[in-house]
Simulated assay, not measured.
Amino acid sequence: MRHLLIALRAIVAREALRFIHQRERFLAALVRPLVWLIVFAAGFRAALGLSIIPPYATYITYETYIVPGLCGMILLFNGMQSSLSLVYDRETGSMRLLLTAPLPRGWLLFCKLLGSTLIGTLQVYTFLAITWAYGIEMTPWGYLAVFPALVVSGLMLGALGLALSSFIKQLENFAGVMNFVIFPMFFLSTALYPLWKMAESSSLLRDICAANPFTHAVELIRFALYLQWNGWALLWTVLAGAVFMALALWGYDPARGLVRRKG
């Protein structure tokens, strides 16, 4: 147990140092959601009328609705960017050295995943502070209650990035794969519009959005911000995270993944 905790502290500290030395990464993580909040929301406000839907007890502005979705966007991009660093580490050899340590491979990958998730959570809280200053206020206790929802969602999205990184051989290919994953997951979800709004245009798209793991991560964050429980969203987020983590472990298995490709 002592060795496991030492590995956890070392890997999380390494992720934190990497983040500190990459200030542009922190700014980029905030610019994307702020552009959506300030620029796009102004144009969509008139086109997308929102009715009273859970967890909201009254009519809300469009800016208020998309804040949880933008929090999910931060976690999604952070998970993919952290996985991009994994591909880079693998090409330089440091990732291979890490995975040959005399510790369970799953624990080492989880430590990497946890460090990335905590960084993403910090970025989300910074964004929430900016939205509060912008005039979009949530339930006061919701800012505390949303923490476990952010961690669970971040772990799920980070595990997806881990799974992708385990099957990508070259750094140059990762950006293209990210685009095929990030944008469909984000736009085919409840981050920008509720399911009933999607159902007005296409029942098929509505069903796709309902099956999207990112949708459940966003709804988990949304309900937590208003101190409400969404067990269905939690269940599907945890199940999706478990599946993605299993794929990552399979991909990084020496018999199939990293060692065989590099060896």
Rank of each mutant, 00 (worst) to 15 (best):
P148A: 03
Y226M: 14
L195S: 11
A240P: 09
L162C: 10
L171W: 08
L239N: 05
K169P: 06
Q228M: 10
A163E: 10
A163K: 09
G231V: 09
A242F: 10
W236I: 08
R206K: 14
A210Y: 12
L205S: 06
P184M: 02
F223Y: 14
S166H: 07
V152C: 08
L171T: 11
F180W: 12
L157N: 01
H216S: 11
M198F: 00
G161Y: 08
V151L: 15
A217R: 03
M156H: 03
L204R: 03
S202N: 10
N230M: 03
L150E: 03
L225W: 07
L220T: 00
H216V: 02
L155W: 07
L155I: 09
Y193Q: 13
L205Q: 02
Y226P: 00
F187V: 11
A233M: 04
A163G: 06
S201L: 14
R206C: 14
A217G: 15
I168A: 08
L239F: 12
T237I: 05
L164F: 13
N179S: 14
E200D: 13
V177S: 12
W232K: 08
F223L: 02
L157Y: 03
L239V: 15
V151M: 08
F186V: 08
F214A: 02
L171V: 13
M185A: 13
M156S: 14
V238Q: 07
A199P: 00
V151G: 01
L204H: 07
C209Y: 04
F214P: 00
M178A: 13
W196D: 15
G158L: 04
L225D: 10
A217V: 04
V151A: 04
T237R: 03
Y226E: 10
S201R: 11
V181R: 06
L155Q: 06
F167T: 07
F174E: 08
I182K: 00
F167P: 00
G176R: 11
S153W: 08
A240H: 07
N173R: 09
P213T: 01
T190W: 05
A217C: 14
A159I: 12
G161H: 06
L227V: 15
Q228V: 02
S166G: 14
A175W: 05
A217Q: 11
T237G: 01
W236M: 10
F223M: 05
L239Y: 03
A240G: 09
G158K: 03
Y193M: 13
G154W: 00
A163P: 00
S203L: 15
I221F: 04
F180Y: 13
F180K: 04
A210M: 09
L205G: 09
L155F: 09
A233Q: 03
F174H: 06
